[in-house]
Design a protein around this nucleic acid. Structure first.
Lengths: 239, 239
DNA sequence: GTGACTTTGTGCATTTGTTCACGAGCGCGT
DNA sequence: ACGCGCTCGTGAACAAATGCACAAAGTCAC
């Protein structure tokens, strides 16, 4: 019994991070009417190796059939269950600037159990305005909104300067999961989970790889000059 | 010489992913007038352990002073250089829906060498409109915009359905780095780097952890009932 | 029912990343 | 000049994640 729990806890973080992608791929297959899929095909659709996919799925249980593959619908259900998408996750979004608006609209696309139940902002000019079918409410109403809908996830779409204050307020209402779009670290008490999404971080990582590629090519060119006589085509693109 | 190149290449991916956060923390310190910082302090500001921070920084070189710490300004410069932020990275954003608009505005906040030089959309109604001081141009002008400004990074903020087409077009213009906000996998030729940012994926990961926490607490409660007589306070919050 | 074929699930080796612990080097007070 | 305390840089131990290869377990044809 406790062993069951331990095995459930045993899903590695790296695997969890890929499950949403698998689920998306499976959903796409369902829409195309495909009912069965091999690890090879699904892995290709999700952009991973088939070995990795099989190992990931093996952490959830044995939902495949040897010699056949996976039942698309059933596997999708099991992944959704593992991710907790079979239950309801009421969400509030704080900060109704451009980003908050985009998120409020975009969230309509989400198939899972996420439901935006509150849009909040500190600016009185925005309060009352209708966005994506929901009236914006003032930050002071946070506690009311949160308890009214048993909100479990908070999304921060404010400037960095107010992010920590907003986060503290969210945590005070009992929210234990925070998605932070502000470009700053949040400090939270133990037991609260935060994830950060940041455009600038991603661009910087892309820039690093781009720069490295440029340096590599340049260095390769030099090396190629030296070795040109012996090896006309030194290397293919690595990685 | 080749060894130099190898050592440069040797910066681990996990480290690269953390460099932007270090840089941000350093920038914040600069703004507060702090000129010197220890690994312990900087690690706390960036939300990592000091050992990890020191190992990460050691991959870039020896920029610290033993017994003293790091010079904030100098370290920031070295990280920025490593990330490629000392050069110019012209960016185009494709898709001027709510998200694209938010990105176009937000990008003004970016301190690094990123410069939005083009906003594109397929919808004629949006073309010509002014967003964040830039006129939206039609997708057909992509090649012109790209060559005119030597664009090196493309950002996709379109619906999933058109993301792959847009990506192909970006790659055709010679762009080798793509940041994808559409909820789908992109297939690209070798030598092209893509990163995906997705609200729904992040929410699902948060949901997983929330659910696990709930299950753990429930199970702990049961275990606690069993063990209650012997251990009134079974455990503190783990992790 | 049997054999050939297919595809999963998994043990093992390898690579990658993290933590620990401590030696090396620097500034400072005396 | 010299020891003392502080903090970086790093090798070695440890942990996590990945890739490989194959046995186990199923379907299908006949």
């Amino acid at each position: 019994m406790v062993a069951d729990l331990t095995s459930r806890r045993g899903v590695p973080d790296a695997t969890v991070a890929r499950l949403p992608e698998y689920l998306r791929a499976l959903t796409a297959l369902t829409e195309r009417g495909v009912t069965s899929v091999s690890s090879e095909e699904l892995a290709a659709a999700a952009g991973v190796s088939s070995a990795k996919l099989r190992k990931d799925l093996s952490h959830l249980g044995s939902y495949g059939v040897r010699g056949v593959g996976y039942d698309v619908e059933h596997l999708a259900y099991e992944i959704a269950r593992e991710l907790g998408l079979t239950q309801d996750w009421p969400v509030v979004i704080v900060g109704m600037g451009n980003l908050g608006r985009a998120l409020a609209d975009y969230s309509g696309f989400i198939k899972g159990g996420f439901r935006v139940v509150g849009l909040l902002d500190r600016d009185p000019a925005l309060v009352g305005q209708d966005i994506a079918g929901l009236a914006v409410r003032h930050m002071d109403d946070l506690a009311a909104v949160a308890s009214e809908h048993s909100v479990s996830i908070g999304v921060i779409a404010t400037p960095a300067a107010s992010a920590q204050d907003v986060c503290d307020a969210l945590v005070d209402t009992g929210i234990r999961a925070v998605l932070n779009f502000a470009p700053c670290m949040l400090s939270v008490p133990d037991g609260v989970d935060t994830r950060r999404v940041d455009l600038s971080t991603e661009l910087q990582i892309l820039a690093f790889h781009s720069q490295r590629r440029m340096l590599d090519v340049a260095a390769e060119g030099v090396a190629g000059d030296e070795a040109a006589a012996s090896a006309p085509t030194p290397v293919g693109a690595a990685r």
